[in-house]
Write a protein that binds this DNA or RNA. Structure first.
Lengths: 221, 221
DNA sequence: CGCATACTTGATAGGTTTCAAACTGAGTGG
DNA sequence: CCACTCAGTTTGAAACCTATCAAGTATGCG
């Protein structure tokens, strides 16, 4: 099912240009791949981050639980994305869809390799900067005033992240609840924004998770 | 004036423990320091990021201009903070107070040094991860539901960032407008939240920018 | 077939934005 | 020295948007 929604790493994420991906292969020698079912925890609060992770397929959500039981999703990781930088964790990560595959790398060994090999260090630096760019784009979404703008930005962002190049059909891998917790609005408001966009003829919905962008320019406004 | 609000780098930011700061000194050989007045641009959209920057004193705001003229502050940099990772810039940075001092380092030379020296690469990685942690904390603020919670978190965050260790008196270096654009709420709402906190006896205000935290536990809730 | 989960839609209460106006303080020039 | 000006701050009132609670619909799975 996950495969139906989100393609594998191959050919995705044009950002790391071949050579970087080549260098990252050096890490695979001490990587192990694990499969997670939806909602299964990958790492939690108190651990002192032993691993660095990379999504191979599926979706991972990184989130913090707030007093009051609310959940705030700090990052959504798609195939190719790394996560688990940061030292003391004040959040947790779990699979957002079934059959999510995640590689884990021993941090100590990654760091040792980076210290000795300048190219590895550079690649590591590059994927860290990518994580920053991702966070900044999310921040811009959160900064939008109306829910309609947030959802519009979200759709555009995910259309370009899920499909390698910005396609106009989009298979949402996550629920309305997840989208709501990601954009800091309620799931009901996500629904209403979706139907509003549909009624305006900006998108069309095959199923709840099958979005087709009809009027891209309208979505960008 | 800036000096009155924000101390210099010395002794600040306990996070990079001596040794890292030691390594970073290696960068200073090809650094130049510039002074900026409030509102003066440090870098803008189209440039291909030639420099890596570090705040020596004062405050820098990194922000994006949104269609409609709204300004969204993506990051507030205090003395010791690095900024200007990221490649293609979709935002701009300017001084938020007068007499803001900023070091700039040629990226090409930093990268060359990092490639050859593992310790420098490690230090660079560490400050990048710090930037991520900062963004994540800001994201948590943006995710709060009510404006009162956002402002409360903001005060706690800045109390610990401006004063080396969490002190209870806090000199805000920025205006209500900046705070509003940082938290994605209007400046009026920032005011109202402040006075609300004052009326509840959680904080007290000497001047508009002189905050004293009376009831820290109340602020954390 | 029935249950569980996810999604959608409705109505109300509450919070925030917006527009407006008054207030404060610092800096300037008469 | 004082009046003036300007930017920043504070407070007020109305319109708007969103959260919340609630109910109803759809879908997949056992």
């Amino acid at each position: 099912m996950a495969q139906a929604y989100v393609a594998d790493i191959q050919g995705l994420h044009g950002s790391p240009p071949g050579s970087v991906e080549q260098v990252l292969k050096a890490l695979d020698q001490f990587a192990s791949v694990k499969s997670y079912s939806r909602g299964q925890q990958i790492f939690g609060y108190c651990e002192e981050q032993k691993y660095l992770y990379r999504v191979r397929s599926g979706v991972v959500r990184k989130f913090a639980l707030q007093p009051g039981g609310r959940r705030h999703i700090l990052d959504l990781l798609l195939p190719g994305d790394f996560f688990g930088f940061g030292s003391g964790q004040e959040y947790l990560a779990e699979a957002a869809v079934d059959r999510t595959l995640v590689s884990q790398y021993y941090r100590t060994r990654v760091e040792a390799l980076a210290r000795s090999d300048g190219e590895v260090a550079e690649a590591l630096q590059m994927i860290t900067v990518e994580a920053i760019a991702r966070l900044e784009r999310q921040m811009l979404m959160l900064g939008k005033t109306t829910a309609l703008e947030k959802v519009s930005c979200f759709l555009l962002e995910f259309a370009s992240r899920i499909n390698g190049q910005a396609s106009d059909v989009l298979a949402l891998p996550i629920s309305r609840y997840d989208i709501g917790d990601y954009l800091a609005i309620s799931s009901e408001t996500v629904c209403r924004s979706m139907t509003e966009l549909k009624h305006r003829g900006i998108i069309s919905l095959q199923g709840p998770r099958e979005v087709r962008i009809v009027d891209r320019e309208g979505l960008e406004a």
